[in-house]
């Protein structure tokens, strides 16, 4: 059924640290590499070496410039994949029951044999987490690497999503966000993790950690602001040029900076 479970035993998900993500896209590559040859249909590319390349990805990294009221702009890299929402709108809109949320761990999956490729689940998702594969015509989405995390054929350290395993800066964490004593839950509590688009009411399981505030240069002496500046005007040749140009009629463009 595409009705949502009232509660799940676990809430497996990711915690993504926007402070430490360096925007290297290694998680994008490892995700595509693992998922194109494992769970379900492969992730196809169209004209990968042509003039208009595109393809299916389950994880994409955006980059944003954020301009504070004062000070320099910050560049923040922003990986985005399925957030495995508790109140997942993509599941309830599915007409065939192909989309479902697992009771045991909360992972949202697509049963590709039942998917008719209508695309309504992608319309219902505010995060752009679902992409229709242009070759297979079925909906693809992050599986939280369900074929890795329980896979006893893999060494234990590899039993986590490919994106988490590959991240070189430790910006991605995987765990049970339903257990308040888990490492990921403690991390979210300590760092003030937040939901994306909370107003959509999707209750995403994946959490994002905000960039830490930029530090500022400490004042080395409380009297410093009251000291006379050491050099008011430019001296030497530039000083002469500045004065000479000021004496010429007309305003100098560029102001007094």
């Amino acid at each position: 059924m595409t009705t949502l479970p009232t509660s799940t035993q676990k809430k497996l998900g990711l915690v993504i640290d926007l402070d430490t993500c360096v925007g290297c896209h290694a998680c994008v590559v490892s995700c595509k590499g693992w998922n194109t040859e494992n769970y379900g249909a492969p992730l196809s590319d169209q004209k990968p070496y042509g003039g208009d390349p595109s393809g299916t990805f389950l994880n994409r990294v955006h980059s944003y410039e954020v301009q504070p009221d004062e000070g320099a702009a910050q560049l923040i890299h922003f990986p985005k994949s399925c957030l495995h929402c508790e109140d997942a709108p993509c599941v309830t809109v599915c007409p065939t029951g192909a989309s479902y949320k697992r009771v045991e761990d909360g992972i949202v999956l697509v049963n590709e044999q039942d998917c008719i490729g209508c695309g309504l689940c992608a319309w219902a998702c505010p995060y752009g987490a679902r992409e229709m594969d242009a070759a297979e015509k079925v909906m693809k989405k992050c599986t939280l690497c369900v074929d890795r995390i329980y896979n006893e054929n893999l060494p234990e350290e590899d039993r986590q999503p490919a994106c988490v395993r590959t991240c070189p800066s430790g910006a991605r964490h995987f765990g049970d966000l339903g257990d308040e004593n888990s490492d990921v839950s403690i991390l979210v509590a300590e760092r003030g993790g937040f939901d994306l688009m909370p107003e959509m009411g999707t209750k995403p399981v994946n959490q994002y950690l905000p960039p830490r505030p930029k530090d500022t240069m400490e004042e080395f002496d409380i009297l410093a602001p009251y000291l006379e500046p050491v050099a008011k005007d430019a001296g030497g040749f530039l000083g002469w040029l500045d004065k000479a140009l000021d004496k010429l009629p007309g305003n100098s463009a560029g102001g007094a900076n």
Binding site: V91, V93, P95, G97, A98
Partner: peptide, 9 residues
């Protein structure tokens, strides 16, 4: 298959 999920969809 699209006739099956009338309870939610």
């Amino acid at each position: 298959k699209a006739f099956s999920q009338w309870r939610s969809s």
